[in-house]
């Protein structure tokens, strides 16, 4: 229902990590705060206020987006994946595993956003070159690692995902 009446809150239906949620939200609520504060999914972080750092990256309908620059109301009817929903409990997605194997994180704050961007990259390009990986990370800032181990982590994951694809 579109309704011409101005409302204090707006109903939304969002599927997050496979679970359907119905909520009434203020129009000004940013998607990142809906995830963090309404759903308790605090793995998605906020690192800036100008849409640059990428710590808040999630997937909306399979695409990596910055959830600090989306209103929760815009996510009505949308499927969302956050870092918490990347792999079943107790397991790691190959990209998460790669970050651990290659020491792709230090303080861990940018990490969920980095991983979500990397997963999106590998879903669209299974064999990215180093340059393509660096380019794909242009919307994610890390202040700890110097990115080198992050690039190696993504290369490790790409390799792992390719070989598991072949073997299955």
């Amino acid at each position: 229902m579109s309704g011409k009446m101005e409302r204090v809150t707006v109903p939304i239906n969002v599927t997050v990590n496979g679970v359907k949620h119905e909520a009434e939200v203020e129009p000004r609520l940013l998607l990142v705060y809906f995830l963090r504060e309404h759903l308790g999914l605090t793995g998605t972080h906020v690192g800036c206020d100008t849409s640059q750092c990428g710590a808040c990256t999630i997937h909306m309908n399979g695409r990596a987006v910055k959830s600090c620059t989306v209103l929760a109301v815009q996510a009505d009817g949308v499927k969302i994946t956050t870092i918490e929903g990347l792999a079943p409990e107790g397991t790691l997605h190959p990209v998460q595993e790669g970050f651990r194997e290659k020491h792709g994180l230090q303080c861990g704050y940018c990490t969920p956003g980095m991983i979500m961007t990397a997963v999106h990259l590998l879903e669209t390009n299974s064999s990215p070159t180093e340059e393509e990986i660096r380019h794909a990370l242009e919307g994610n800032l890390c202040r700890c690692t110097g990115y080198i181990h992050i690039v190696e982590a993504i290369q490790w994951a790409a390799q792992r995902m390719r070989s598991s694809h072949v073997s299955s």
Binding site: S51, G54, T57, M60, R63, A64, V65, K66, T69, V70, T117, H120, L121, A136, E138, G139, N140
Partner: peptide
């Protein structure tokens, strides 16, 4: 334009 995430949205 911007970055991957910005171009997606």
């Amino acid at each position: 334009i911007g970055d991957v995430q910005v171009r997606n949205r």
